[in-house]
Design a protein around this nucleic acid. Structure first.
Length: 285
DNA sequence: TGCCAGGAATTGC
DNA sequence: GCAATTCATGGC
């Protein structure tokens, strides 16, 4: 099943793809303007940009049914207008960032479990090495289907040993965190799908009860996994460096200094964070 | 070379 | 309770 859809608001699909392409797990083709998404039912769905920033349209192919279309619309933020968000920041210190990145959507993760695994691997490590670790993990324990990666089932990862992950150059702690998370999901102690209907605070409380998931990882899950609009990980080094540059400081801002800006930025903290990250990820803008 | 990296748990006072 | 330390290793 293939459908063509258009959106009634500006949407920067190319910048969305550029961000997805920063994660080597994703199957993105920037020239063809498409990304292929592994679905839980086993098929692959291709989402291709066919329009422009001002008149966005898409060709979505490989769908099995309407339910899958609804999931794709949810993942890509197709039913949540973005055009009021940049205006909210017009009179703030983030106006230049929003002038550049307005219309870039907060595309949700293709796998909630995978989002947490990726986040744990990325804790404290530079992006390039973290991605090396992630791909070593995927090549040994993930599944590749027509060039598209799927994370291993939590039940499979739950049976890994710390020694096996140490061989991939995971730290002992990272190995324990990933295995422990997988066991919690596999044993039903953590129901990730149920998080979709819970409040930010409820999700944070459940996730941070697990060893290895702190505020930064929980906030990332809410932002990128669930697409929640009002999270800002103040502990994030990248965001601290982005604000240091934006504010022209000679040191990174403290978390308290960042939180002082929350009243002006709310209720769109997630977009502030997303665009600040983008502002330092792509030197050309 | 030494500090830093899209943190979190643990220890020490 | 809160600050300092530890974890592991690549990048620069």
């Amino acid at each position: 099943m293939t459908v063509e859809i258009g959106l009634p608001y500006p949407y920067d699909f190319d910048r969305a793809l550029a961000r997805l392409a920063g994660n080597p797990v994703h199957a993105v083709d920037l020239d063809e303007r498409l990304v292929r998404v592994p679905m839980d039912e086993g098929n692959l769905v291709s989402v291709q940009g066919t329009g422009t920033f001002g008149e966005p349209s898409f060709r979505i192919s490989g769908l099995l049914d309407e339910k899958q279309l609804a999931r794709v619309r949810w993942i890509f933020h197709f039913d949540e207008p973005l055009d009021g968000i940049a205006a909210h920041f017009a009179d703030t210190d983030l106006a230049p960032i929003f002038a550049e990145h307005a219309g870039t959507p907060l595309v949700r993760s293709f796998s909630l479990y995978g989002e947490l695994v990726k986040s744990i691997i990325h804790q404290q490590l530079n992006l390039s090495f973290a991605n090396v670790l992630l791909m070593r993990f995927m090549e040994l324990y993930g599944m590749q289907q027509d060039g598209v990666w799927r994370f291993p089932a939590p039940e499979q990862a739950a049976r890994l040993t710390v020694a096996e992950l140490r061989e991939l150059q995971f730290s002992t702690r990272k190995a324990e965190y990933v295995i422990g998370l997988s066991q919690a999901v596999a044993e039903g102690r953590l129901d990730l799908e149920s998080m979709r209907t819970k409040t930010d605070d409820e999700v944070t409380a459940e996730l941070t009860a697990l060893r290895g998931i702190g505020p930064w990882t929980a906030q990332g899950f809410l932002m990128f996994g669930l697409g929640r609009p009002n999270l800002f990980p103040t502990a994030d080094i990248g965001l601290q460096n982005a604000l240091k540059a934006l504010w022209d400081l000679d040191r990174k801002p403290t978390q308290a200094e960042i939180r002082e800006r929350f009243p002006d930025w709310s209720p769109y903290l997630s977009y502030a964070a997303l665009y600040l990250w983008r502002s330092i990820e792509t030197p050309a803008g």
